[in-house]
Design a binder for these strands. Structure first.
Lengths: 253, 253
DNA sequence: CGTGTTATTGAAGAACGTCAAGCGGGGTGG
DNA sequence: CCACCCCGCTTGACGTTCTTCAATAACACG
């Protein structure tokens, strides 16, 4: 679980905040706290409530009225869109500190489901928007995050539209590794299932499995069901269709 | 050209503004004007400069330093990302009133190229950010737009990851039609080339051409090189893999 | 320890890509 | 004004990649 523990520490610099109001809800330590000034923290406390999610539990579904926004405080959730016949596209994996449900419409546009035991901090949407009105630095923070998410989504469009199966898997692994900022060769955890990976990369589980197997045969990586280690990072980058200095992924947060 | 003319009128309600400062640069009439109060308009005037683009001209390239932001005032631009071997993914087509170059990083993450004779209104980035600091309603407007663009990008991820060629083309045509809010059966313009469409939908020109031809054989649409008319909207929606009431696309603006 | 779920592996098939040839429109230059 | 050429679009034949279908293996859970 060392890998996951690191995955969760997305915005470590924000955890320095020792303000008394920051203790109750971990979310405040993770992101919002740094953005809102001390004056707003009491109001934030009043707004927040924590919620636990078992693996597979859905926080909200595509089409639900969007009445709350959330911050992930533990674990990992996937966001996905579905089609009537069951095809799915995973939009992203949200980790600690990420906002959920920020779509500025009346309805949620994807489903949010826990891929491992997780918890979130919930805010009433309307109250949250009012807070936004009063706290420009929070609004700037949200804008910054939304804008980063947009850049990530656009990078993923390139992957989904133009990359081969091998390139997709290689990009995915490098992206995870970069997000964890791990030294090469150190194994890290994949909390999501093969089927989630397939739905994220626009492939089938079989293709994911076969491609990972071929990477292992080529000694690019080593892996077990929920663990991966990068053995030859340079060659893996090459397999991802990236230049040396290229951006394997823009970390989501 | 009737179709294009309508394509350009994305935010018609904003054109009501009769403030003297709104006359010079069309951008102010299209979007920003409504967001910033009259007090900020003189500053906006001072910041702006207009720029013409011939078809095929690039406004900025992936990797360039991001020193300005732009608003499209005439025509249409495509945003795309490239891979070293020449593969491309078109991220989106930007029409009048859309912002360009808002990536909150030091570098542009895609190339912007005119698909038809176009013009943009340029703002020095730093000045623009300062303006953002002083004008909360403008910041809110930008947040709203960014958030909408994110939703569009996520919808496109579903298309690129999970839809068949027919579904992609059908979705694309319906999306354009919805954006123009045309009555069915009325022909409208496709300013972009087949190759741009292919790069937008993650296909090849040949597949785009063949699929359009098959739609015409099935009498779903009629088309000419740069004109399309929807003949059987219900069946086209079905071909797009959408439910009756479903969202063919969230208009970009 | 058994059972359901998830992952792997193989073989056959389909969808889309690649290669190649032909068409047609628009622009240029004679 | 016409002929030519270039470029974008279309259409056909063939290949490749990925999916689909199916069987087996490995794990997680009670």
């Amino acid at each position: 679980m060392a890998g996951v523990a690191q995955l969760l520490r997305v915005r470590p610099q924000a955890s320095d905040c020792a303000h008394p109001h920051c203790v109750g809800c971990e979310a405040r330590r993770m992101g919002i706290c740094a953005a809102v000034g001390p004056g707003f923290l009491p109001r934030l406390s009043a707004l927040a409530s924590e919620q636990q999610l078992a693996t597979g539990a859905t926080l909200f579904e595509e089409g639900d009225a969007a009445e709350s926004v959330y911050i992930v405080t533990h674990g990992m959730l996937k966001l996905y869109k579905g089609m009537v016949d069951g095809r799915r596209q995973v939009i992203g994996f949200m980790v600690v500190g990420d906002f959920l449900g920020l779509a500025f419409g009346r309805l949620h546009l994807c489903t949010a489901e826990a891929v491992m035991p997780s918890s979130v901090c919930r805010f009433r949407r309307q109250k949250f928007v009012e807070l936004l009105d009063e706290c420009p630095s929070l609004e700037r923070e949200i804008l910054h995050r939304t804008s980063t998410e947009l850049a990530v989504a656009q990078e993923q469009m390139l992957l989904l539209g133009r990359k081969t199966a091998s390139e997709r898997l290689a990009s995915f692994i490098l992206c995870l590794a970069r997000r964890l900022r791990l030294p090469d060769d150190q194994p890290f955890e994949l909390p999501m299932s093969r089927s989630d990976i397939a739905d994220y990369l626009g492939l089938t589980v079989e293709t994911v499995s076969r491609t990972l197997a071929s990477f292992r045969r080529a000694a690019l990586i080593d892996f077990d069901r929920h663990t991966v280690a990068i053995r030859r990072p340079r060659q893996l980058q090459h397999a991802a269709g990236l230049t040396e200095g290229g951006s394997p992924c823009l970390a989501l947060s």
